[in-house]
Structure formats: C-alpha cells, structure tokens
Design a protein around this nucleic acid. Structure first.
Length: 805
RNA sequence: GCGAGGGUGUCGGAACUGGCAGACGAGCUGGACUUAGGAUCCAGUGCCGCAAGGCGUAGGGGUUCAAAUCCCCUCCCUCGCACCA
C-alpha cells in the first residue's frame, strides 16, 4: 500500500487551524496545576521580517513548552512585539509614512510568519510596547522611579552628530562617525533623564547567586557591574583650601604617587583658572578632548597625551612632598572621582605617561624593575620606601594604609562600580513620552497617574530640530500644558524613553495582559512569576538583562512584584550566519527568508534543521543542503506508515532502542542538546527502514518524541494511524531504566591499550566470565603468546583491558 | 590587556563520570531505477598501505592498563569588556 504524498503545506495549515480553534496552547486560568513560564525575547518587528535567528530561540523553547504541557504543567509561552525604536522611525522619515502604520504592517507580517512556523504561543496574550494601554504602565513605572528618587535630570555628554544635528545612541556611532551620514560625532552636554541603577549595583551582583544563568552570562553581568574595592584619598592643593579627591584600588602605593592627573572635565580646572599659568595650552587641550568621541578617547588613542597645570601642585599625604598636577584624557570623568593619583612604578598606564613626560618613578613595591616597566604583581611584592608600610605584603599594606588614612582623616574605604547610571532620554519621536512636565515655578513635576498614558501625539515630521530636541518639541499645542502642581503654564518633557524601557517589564504584562487597573495583578504574578526559563540572544545578556533585573528589583521593593529576580534560568543561542560564514544582513543581500523555506520544505523541516544545525549555543553558518537532509528525514518518517505492523508494544529487537531513545531525547531536550536528540531519532528511523517494519507502539513512541520539534507532521501521522486524541493532549512518555541496556553487550578487549577484539558477554558478566570470553578470541591469544600479563582491568559493559610485557 | 568559551574527517558536528574516536547530517565515489535526475534506493567514504599492519582529536611533554576528555608548556580562533585608576 503506497501512502499518499507528504504534503507539508496542507498538513501544516490544517493543524495550525485546529490548534487555533481549540485554543490548544492557551495558558489556563486553572491555578491548581503547577505552572511553567517559558519566555523568549520578544522580537523587534523590523521591516525585513523574521530572520532565521528568531526561530532558533523560538523553536527551542517551543520544544520545552510543548514538553512541559505534556508533563502536566500549565504553561505560559507568550509572544509580543518590542516595537518602538529607530529603524521604524527612520523608515517612516524616509517613506513619509506614520511610524504607527509602519509598526502595524510589520507586526502583521511577523505574526503571520510566526504562525506559519507553528509555535505554541498563547496568542491571546500578545503585547505591543507601542500600544498606549501598554506604555501607560511603562510610564507609570517611570513615575514610581521618580517618586522614589531613582530618576533625575543630569547634564551629561551625549554623542552629537554635527551634520545631522542630532543625538546618537552609542550603537549608532560607528568608528567615531555617524552611522547614517558619516558625519563627525562629538560629545555634547545635554540635560538628560537618568535612572539610578548604580544604587542597585551591589544587589544586582549579589543576587546572581540566586539564579541559574549560563556561566558566561553571569560573568558578563559581573564584568559590567565591575565592582572594585579601594579607598578615596584627599590630596591638598598647595596654596588653597581645595582638595583633590581620588579613588584608588592600591592605597598601599601612596608613597609612590609622584604626580596627579585630572580628567579634562574636572571642576577644579575652571575653579582654579586664575592660578593656571598655561591656561591657553590647557584650554586648547580640553577643547580637543571634548571634540573626541568616547570611541576615540578610548579605542583609538594609543599614545597618551596630556598637559601640566602649571602653577598648581598637590601634597602627597603620605610623603608630604609637593607633586605636579596634570590633565589627560586617559582619566575619565565618569569613573571614580575624575582624578587619580599616578603611581608610575606600579601602574602601567601611569608608567607610560611618566616615561613620555619625564615624571619621576619611585619604586614602592619590590620585585620588578620599575625603570623597565611598571611592577603590578600584588602576590609576590613587598613594600619599600613606604614608611609604616615597609616590609608588608601588598594585601596587608592596603588594609594598613586605609586604616591609617581613616585615622588621619585623609581618606576612607570605598567601593566603586564601573556600572553607570542609565541614560534614559532619547531625542526621538518613536518612543514612550516621558511623563514629566516642567514648570518655571515648580520645576519638574510628574504627570499625575490618573492622566496616564501621556499619548504620543501625531506629528507632521519626525526629524529632530536644530538644537537636537525631539520632534515632539515642535508641537506647541502638545508641549504647552498646565502645571499639575500650580496650574500655571508649563511645558511637557519632549524626550522619549529608550528601547530598553518597554522590554524591561514585558514579561510581567504577559501574566495579565488586559489589566487596566495595574501593570499586572499580584494574584497573577504570584502564580506565574518568576519566568522559569528565558532564552535569547547573547547580544542582550548584558544590558537588557541588567536593566530588567533593576526594574524588577525596584518593583519588588515597592511591593508590585512578588519575586526578587525576574528570571530563574537564562540561556542563550548562537547566531546563524549566511552560508559563506558572513553575518546575515540586508546590505549584504544574504538574508535567508523563512517564508521561502516554509513554502518549499515546510515549517517542520525548517524547525528540525534549526535544531539539528549544530550545538545550540554555537554560532553556525546556514546550509541549504543540510536543510534538505532534514526534509529527507521527515519523508522517511512519513514513509514509516507503510511499514506498520501489528503490536501496541515494542518488538523484542527494538525494545532497548525505544527506551534508550526515549531517555536520550527527553534528557537532550532539557540540556538543549537538540542536535543529538534529532540524530538519535534519525538513527532510529533508519533502523526501522532497515528492518522493513515498525510496530504501532514503536511508531507511536517515535512520533511522540519527535512532536515537540516537528509538531505538524507528527500530529498528522498520529491521526492517520489512529492513535487517539492528539499528541498535544497526551502525557510525555517515560522510559524504563532497566530496559535501556541490552542483556548482551559487546565489549572491547584491549591489549596494551589497543583494541584487538570485540566479544559479546552478558551485561552483568563477572570478570571471570569476561576474561574467559576474551581469552577465547584467537586474536587475543595471538597477542598474549610469549608475553606475561602484568595487569587486567575489567569495566562491566565497557572494556576488558590487559597489559602485557 | 582582562574575562569566558573553543581547536576532532572535505564540511556542520557526535563521544556518559577517562573506557572501541568520527554517531547523525551534508558532500564525494560507485551502482540500481529512469527519456531525464538537483528525486528515490543500495554500497563505500579519517589518513598511509595490495595486505598484514601502522598513524590519527592544534603542537610538545606528562599521569594512567586506558586520554579528544585529566595536568604542565606553546600556538591559534571566537565572543564579551576594554586607559574603570
């Protein structure tokens, strides 16, 4: 009997319709069941449509979600759109279409593409960050942050494109120039809303212990937070009452501080302008430094530069000696105090600078040759030339010095973080309006909660104005409002929020997406949170994770979420490259379109290939041939229906294989080793074809195991063969550990480390039995002839090893 | 420079807790079927060798009956951070 053709389009459409009609994958309101919350990063609905990276993550957690449902969990696997952002705005500017329309179109396209791939999302909970009903709560969170003193305005430098006359995000500055026009980018001071994430630095660090993130993800978080311990030390400025405060992790080297360096932006420079003899030189240097972008100041600057502040000097509090003060852009205003004590003998940056400008180098830790290079080893060194510290090791000297400084009132113990406060303003149109009003009398006043959302008004033109203000600044009827405080005339904030805002809490909204009273009800959050398993790209494991953890902790502190951390487990998938190993991009013209693949080989083949392509966390090039191999596999599965024989159980020859494969696939899914799970099922399928038959029980099991990856074809075959209610309503199969090993196993016989024979023995054969079997082999006998056995090792089910002389 | 992870056939990759290296897929070679083959099926496919056998997991050394796996040294690659005092 020849079965009908495997018609993927027909089958996939059919099952997608059934799932939709049945609401098969809706999270149920029934809270008596244990819950499981699987989350993928919601996509940015770009104009290019889905790219092959999305399905890699989506399929992986779809497998987990489908499996969990079969394991009896009430599963929440939601989807939404992170739809505010620049590409849409730029597209809108270029094509003169309202970003809202562009967004709607893009979302519709994404939705169709995602649906065509058969993901088991709960489509009834879709969220969209650009929906006023959603961003109302994003604004609400901002108000709460403001209310708790965690949002403030500050004058901080932004990347400013001199030709477009707009502020750019860091990622828009490429190689020091504007990504779009190639124009020069400089730093410009602008007043910006900031969020005090630094206040949470320690907790963000400490609570990493409470979560199960991949090690490298944790490492990135730790790295980014960048905690370092040390001391702040005051240096008196000679002839003034002023002090220069520095942060150092090496207070033990204070005796070796032979000069100081201020950042070019340091306030003391202007304050003591009158004393600076070479003001012209200094101000020229500052101007050059200001013109440099952060990129140039760090990445490109190989050789250090600087100028002395002639007429200013400081006192080293340890030696009492007068030391010169310089300015240089290797000292960053944004870290520590914006000033350093330079210890050229024991810091390679200071050493380089001192060598270039002929500043004195003093050895205070013995062990190297400070004339040749800075000696920075803190393990082996012993303090010298350092008064009370002489003879101490570095760690001891650090503590001794801090104690001394504290006693003398010259300094204090201090912890610093690399983490900076979060610049929260964007001078853009397509983002959440920041719900603040500025009144000349009252200052900044929050928009009352009852007036939320502050809806983004329609504008004619999305281009920022000459001063780099958001396009919203041009809509006077929107900008001009009344002060919620005094009722007088006031102006709305025209900056909008960054992309990171809406994505910092979306997982909460999924728990209760239609709530118009709260961002989500505590009742729902108590049940669903935390997210049990969150997968996404490696590119989001630093900022997005940190920002959303920060917001979550804040919401926890003020009593709106029930958990300290948002995500229990975080994994990341590798990128998929084009066939030639390049990154896929529109400009390179090498983007692989999932639509064409779904059309040609079907969603199931696509999904199988996405999982089979390689190790899940590895970056990997796409292969059209590899995809075809997966289609062939599904065709072989399809044709198994022609080999079907009676028997609801497993045949003796396949029993062990069935249990083994059940175990392997089950565990591999959990470990995200999808490629080997697929391989195991391919192998099994090949063996059924070799055998020319498969029992109904065996076929049933194979379809069941394959279902999470290839849900359409397996449901179809399940129905054709008549296995009863659909797979998605079945329970996940179990295996019998006892039956995962054959009664008779083949073990290798090694002589001096080389395999000389393979013998069959019972799986629990004693050493004697195994030995007997081994010795009976002709080949073994040959290698033992005339030799003396010195050692024999028997590892049941594995090996019989003989060492001879 | 710092942090993390890697280096295995022609390619993507397998290999439990140290136990027969190369599963599975692709490609390639040969064959079958065919008007045809970019379809399907069968066989083969790490390297050297007619064979027996030998050699093989970046390179070198070590531990062990046994090493891709553990230890030491060297080289290379990828990712993240990068003048963070």
């Amino acid at each position: 009997m020849a079965s009908r053709e495997y018609n993927h389009s027909e089958i996939e459409k059919k099952w997608q319709d059934i799932w939709e009609k049945e609401g098969a994958f809706r999270a149920t309101p029934d809270k008596s069941k244990p819950k499981y919350y699987t989350l993928i990063e919601f996509p940015y609905p770009s104009g290019e449509g889905l790219h092959v990276g999305h399905p890699r993550s989506n399929t992986a957690l779809d497998i987990i979600a489908r499996k969990r449902r079969m394991e009896g969990y009430n599963v929440l696997y939601p989807i939404g759109y992170d739809a505010f952002g620049l590409p849409t705005e730029n597209y809108a500017i270029k094509n003169k279409i309202h970003p809202r329309i562009v967004t709607e179109t893009n979302i519709a396209r994404f939705r169709n593409q995602l649906k065509s791939l058969g993901f088991s999302f709960d489509w009834s909970r879709e969220v969209n960050t650009t929906d006023p009903e959603y961003y109302k709560w994003t604004q609400w969170i901002f108000l709460k942050l403001y209310e708790h003193g965690l949002a403030y305005k500050a004058e901080i430098p932004i990347n400013w494109c001199t030709s477009c006359k707009i502020g750019l995000a860091n990622e828009e500055v490429v190689g020091g120039v504007c990504e779009r026009c190639g124009g020069e980018v400089v730093r410009k001071i602008k007043s910006q809303w900031m969020l005090k994430i630094t206040e949470y630095a320690q907790r963000l660090l400490d609570d990493l212990d409470k979560v199960d993130y991949l090690e490298k993800i944790k490492a990135q978080q730790v790295n980014w937070i960048g905690r370092s311990e040390g001391a702040e030390v005051d240096f008196a400025v000679v002839g003034t009452e002023k002090k220069i405060r520095v942060f150092t992790t090496r207070p033990d080297t204070l005796f070796g501080a032979t000069y100081m360096v201020l950042s070019p932006e340091h306030h003391l420079i202007d304050e003591e302008r009158g004393r600076i003899a070479n003001w012209e030189e200094v101000s020229e240097y500052r101007a050059v430094a200001a013109r440099k972008s952060d990129f140039e100041r760090t990445e490109l600057t190989k050789e250090k530069t600087g100028v002395p502040l002639k007429g200013l000097s400081a006192l080293n509090p340890a030696t009492g000696k007068e030391i010169p003060v310089w300015i240089s852009d290797y000292v960053l205003m944004s870290y520590g105090t914006g000033a350093i004590m330079a210890v050229p003998g024991h810091d390679s940056r200071d050493w380089e600078f001192a060598k270039k400008y002929g500043l004195p180098i003093v050895e205070v830790v013995k062990g190297g040759d400070v004339e040749k290079e800075a000696f920075v080893d803190i393990q082996s060194g012993v303090l010298v030339n350092s008064g009370l510290l002489n003879g101490l090791t570095v760690p001891v000297a650090i503590q001794t010095m801090i104690d001394w400084l504290e006693k003398q009132g010259l300094g204090t113990r201090k912890v610093n973080y690399k983490l900076r406060d979060w610049v929260f303003s964007r001078q853009r149109y397509w983002g959440e309006p920041i719900p603040m009003v500025h009144c000349d009398k009252c200052g900044w006043v929050p928009v009352p909660e009852a007036e939320l959302p502050v809806v983004l008004p329609d504008v004619e033109n999305y281009i920022p104005n000459e001063e780099g203000e958001s396009p919203l600044a041009n809509i006077t009827e929107w900008v001009n409002t009344t002060c919620p405080g005094c009722g007088g005339p006031a102006k709305r904030e025209t900056d909008t929020m960054p992309n990171w805002a809406g994505s910092s809490w979306y997982f909460l909204r999924y728990c209760d997406p239609d709530n118009d009273k709260e961002l989500a009800s505590m009742n729902e959050l108590r049940y669903w949170m935390p997210v049990d398993w969150y997968n996404g790209g490696m590119e989001h494991t630093t900022l997005h994770l940190l920002y959303s953890r920060f917001w979550h902790k804040f919401l926890y502190d003020i009593g709106y979420v029930p958990t300290l951390e948002p995500y229990m487990k975080r994994t990341s998938h590798g990128m998929i490259l084009a066939e030639n190993g390049e990154k896929m991009s529109k400009s390179r013209g090498n983007v692989i379109n999932p639509d064409a693949i779904v059309e040609e080989v079907g969603a199931d083949s696509f999904r199988v290939y996405e999982m089979f392509i390689g190790a899940f966390d590895q970056t990997i090039p796409w292969s059209q041939q590899g995809l075809k191999g997966c289609r062939r596999f599904l065709e072989r599965v399809w044709r198994l229906q022609d080999l079907l024989v009676k028997g609801e159980g497993f045949s003796p020859e396949f029993e062990v294989s069935m249990h083994k494969t059940t175990k392997k696939v089950t565990l591999d899914y959990e470990r995200m080793k999808f490629n080997t799970a697929v391989a195991a099922m391919m192998e099994l399928t090949n063996r059924f074809h070799d055998a020319g038959k498969i029992t109904r029980g065996e076929f049933r099991r194979l379809l069941h195991l394959l279902n999470p990856i290839a849900p359409h074809i397996t449901e179809e075959l399940w129905e054709i063969v008549g296995f009863g209610k659909p797979i998605y309503r079945q329970s996940w199969p179990a295996w019998d550990e006892e039956k995962t090993v054959e009664d008779t196993v083949e073990i290798a016989v090694q002589i001096n480390g080389k395999v000389r024979a393979v013998v069959s023995v019972s799986r629990d054969a004693s050493q004697e039995e195994a030995r007997e079997a081994a010795m009976a082999e002709e080949a073994v006998e040959k290698y033992l002839e005339g030799k003396r056995i010195v050692k024999e090792v028997y590892i049941p089910q594995r090996i019989y090893s003989i060492a001879v002389k």
